[in-house]
């Protein structure tokens, strides 16, 4: 049988995901480790994600202003920027930043644990390392990325409001009304739901790459690197799928 590394990789990941669903929902639950991972993965990523979101909001506003002013549509900037951020930019930028920060750290952490036999040590000391290391992290990324995205959206919209006020005066109430006037559930909910999948992908791929890292310190670096690369790619693919799905469901 010819050797297709990509197929083998995909199969391995699918098997890994299957194991996550098989093991993850069986007791016993590593609640304390999960909460700690949520804290590390979610709360400690907030400054980075927040700064990114702030800059994204302000830049989008300032960049779109000249074009919109040409069309005399400056009053549409809040609606346009709001839609852009909530539908696409917020989820995708946050997920990419998240993949860069969390995917690599999970890949490196688990990779080095694998290389220094810490994962074996857990196995030997009667702790299921898959549950203790993988399930907690994947669950944490799956649940924390949506929260991070929501906060990044909020920060980006506030930054957009600030950006508008740098060249004119808009009240917050008018801004909020402008944004909401063009917004529907079909804009918010699919964008929110897809972030769960982004988070799941980042966590799962980071864990997979780390968990099966080759021996040696080079393997750790490779695990961290390929975790980021693959999860970024998968995020874009998932985004495409999400767009198609929401289109099929008539939510676009």
């Amino acid at each position: 049988m010819p050797n297709y590394p990509i197929l083998a990789e995909a199969g391995g990941m699918a098997h890994f995901a299957g194991r996550f669903f098989r093991d993850g929902f069986r007791p016993r639950y590593e609640v304390s480790e999960w909460l700690y991972q949520c804290y590390v993965i979610g709360y400690q990523s907030l400054p980075l994600v927040g700064v990114t979101g702030f800059i994204m909001g302000i830049v989008l506003t300032l960049q779109s202003r000249p074009t919109m002013a040409q069309f005399g549509a400056e009053s549409w900037i809040p609606a346009m920027v709001g839609l852009t951020i909530i539908r696409e930019m917020g989820p995708i930028i946050t997920a990419l930043i998240f993949a860069g920060k969390i995917g690599s750290s999970i890949g490196a952490e688990l990779g080095s644990m694998r290389v220094t036999e810490q994962i074996d040590a857990m196995e030997v000391s009667g702790t299921n390392p898959f549950k203790y290391l993988v399930v907690t992290r994947v669950l944490a990324t799956t649940l924390m990325l949506p929260v991070l995205t929501l906060l990044a959206d909020a920060i980006a919209l506030y930054a957009s409001y600030i950006g508008l006020n740098m060249r004119g005066v808009t009240t917050l109430a008018l801004f909020v009304n402008n944004v909401l006037s063009r917004l529907a559930f079909g804009d918010v909910l699919p964008a929110f739901i897809k972030t769960f999948f982004f988070g799941f992908a980042v966590g799962l791929i980071g864990c997979y790459k780390g968990f099966y890292a080759d021996k040696g310190t080079e393997g750790v670096g490779q695990a961290a690197n390929s975790a980021v690369v693959v999860s970024s790619l998968v995020i874009f693919i998932l985004d495409l799928v999400a767009v198609q799905l929401t289109g099929l469901l008539g939510l676009n």
Binding site: G42, L150, L180
Partner: peptide
């Protein structure tokens, strides 16, 4: 801190959905 973080995020979602509704 984690609780505050999660609550803030969910509050954003709930407020948006409520306003839209």
């Amino acid at each position: 801190r984690l609780g505050l973080f999660v609550l803030a995020g969910l509050a954003c979602l709930v407020v948006t959905l409520f306003l839209l509704g």
